[in-house]
Design a binder for these strands. Structure first.
Lengths: 344, 344
DNA sequence: GTGAAAGCGCTAACAT
DNA sequence: ATGTTAGCGCTTTCAC
């Protein structure tokens, strides 16, 4: 790679001082027009570009924010990323995005890199569960301690002091369940690949509340918690044989689609025999048939909120003490995988 | 935000010089054990982290690569990104990813930011078409000129000197078409939202070659080029009424799925009446029914190749003159939207 | 109009 | 064992 041209190089070319060149390039009035235009032409011809890193050091700011998301193959996170990108861009910031790939170790490494001056702030959905305070959660706390501008979204950790944008997962679970009940479903199973997360459990709590209101007993066996390698088909078949399921709530998009594929293959009709509602209103759910009724978490909006919150904090160096926690409501996008609501 | 603690702060705390602190923190043997451990404890307690920006300036390297992709909602690019992330991570690099969102202006801005020392190299799929040399393509050329390590993939620009990873789009178009022909289809339409790109046109060329081999006349009317706002349903309906279509090749995943939805709604059976093949083997095509036969471009592999090529060049500062161009073959993933191949 | 000097945070070669 | 110096590339006073 060709050595990058610097002010110094130009200075020695013209036998003037570095500061003169700097001023010329920045179009300062202090420099004579002749010299200035000659220097600027030379700089342009030789593709001079000011070294960003040096400027960053000088300004103690990089105009860059770091974004840490667990999984780029999940449409929800892609939408959030998209939302962040939009407003960051609008407000003159770049984003450096890191995929933690559900791995705690990778997330730690990433945070280590980021928390070190390369970004002005961080937006993160952490994979840390509340139990894993040691080692890692500690890093997050330290960062909050040091008041590095940070906003957590979706999978937040309560005891970390920072701005937060969260989804009303409890209500989402409650409303989806109520919808099942209102359309005549009685035995509703939940398929959850995220039962280890707080948000996953909140949705289940919402589900419980809806059941309770209708005086339906909660049955632990209807909660199908999937591990990384668990075979959904197997687990589902078992419950299907055992119980008289007529509704399934899947806590992410891909599970919803898979559930439908499986139950259709086993001869059930959707929604006549079994209704399905999924989480995350992505492309998949729209195009399968029947099209899936989904809970939308408004990913892009969440991304935008995160970015605005973060940039406000970065730009208002006058630290406002208090941290904001924004709760975003979900919407139920009703399509064909659920039955009609009876007329009121 | 709390002021970040620096070596200087620690030095004045202990009333020693900055370099002593630096050495202590880097565990140099030159420093006495007592002082060293006291300094290190203090540093740790106060969350000292070396300033990355200063180090970058010193080392003239950021261990970061920039990735510019046109569209994060396209599964192919997501897969490429994923592939890049994997090897970058493995080889100790971070990635800063920028979504140009199909906008030339945004791409320019992004490149401007990146080409300025904030990254050690760039991986890009450019939205520039060959015609737009002025203004923007120029930036790309300048960068190549300056020998900034760079690799272009998928949508490459021929006259930019850099490493490249491309898909064999011509052959992909040829083979997909041949597959239609071999399974008895005679009148094959193409739905292309990317007819303005080179890769889009290459696929059509491959299609033409396959037709020619079977002595079938090429009919311009069967190429359905979609603009940003064109209504696929309308355009498709028109051709469907006019011609006796029995095969449709869609040049991206979402179009393939939409095409299927439309023709099923109009009462055609897939693949009995009309066969469909799409490009980009993502999640969608697998779960629609019938499952779609797709051309896989092996996105993750392409990403990995790009990253390896780029990092090799970054690390081998001894500039090898020649640039590599790697061509990746596609695979046809046969599913249910095409008829059976007759026995040989 | 032009230049010298300081400093952003850090390391490393070179004193002491 | 500890300190001094120089320098990465740049901007910004302040002198001349």
């Amino acid at each position: 790679m060709k050595k990058k041209i610097t002010l110094k190089d130009i200075a020695s070319e013209f036998k003037v001082s570095i500061s003169t060149v700097s001023k010329a390039i920045n179009d300062s009035h202090e420099i004579s027009d002749g010299l200035k235009s000659r220097i600027r032409k030379y700089a342009k011809d030789n593709h001079y570009r000011p070294n960003k890193v040096a400027l960053n050091l000088l300004n103690k700011s990089t105009k860059t924010i770091g974004v840490v998301i667990p999984n780029i193959l999940n449409y929800f996170f892609v939408q959030v990323l998209y939302g962040i990108e939009q407003v960051a861009n609008e407000r003159g910031f770049s984003i450096i995005s890191c995929i933690s790939n559900q791995s705690l170790e990778k997330e730690s490494k990433t945070l280590d890199v980021l928390s070190t001056g390369s970004v002005d702030g961080i937006i993160i959905s952490s994979v840390v569960s509340e139990s894993q305070i040691e080692g890692h959660g500690k890093l997050l706390m330290e960062m909050a301690d040091d008041q590095i501008p940070m906003v957590m979204f979706d999978r937040v950790i309560e005891w970390v002091d920072c701005d937060k944008v969260i989804v009303d997962d409890f209500e989402a679970g409650y409303r989806a369940t109520k919808y099942f009940l209102d359309t005549g479903c009685k035995t509703i199973a939940i398929v959850t690949p995220i039962n280890h997360t707080k948000i996953g459990r909140l949705r289940v709590e919402g589900y419980k509340k809806a059941l309770k209101e209708r005086k339906i007993d909660f049955n632990e066996k209807l909660i199908l918690a999937l591990g990384r390698k668990d075979d959904l088909e197997l687990i589902l078949s078992f419950v299907l044989n055992d119980k008289n399921i007529d509704g399934i709530l899947a806590l992410d998009e891909i599970s919803a689609v898979k559930v439908m594929t499986i139950i259709k293959a086993r001869g059930y009709r959707v929604p006549k025999d079994i209704s399905i509602i999924g989480f995350t209103n992505g492309q998949l759910s729209k195009y399968v048939s029947p099209a899936l009724t989904m809970v939308s978490q408004h990913g892009a909006y969440i991304g935008e909120s995160c970015a605005n919150l973060l940039l406000d904090r970065i730009e208002n160096k006058n630290e406002q003490e208090s941290f904001n926690s924004k709760v975003v409501k979900t919407s139920l996008i009703v399509r064909e995988s659920t039955r009609e609501l009876p007329m009121a």
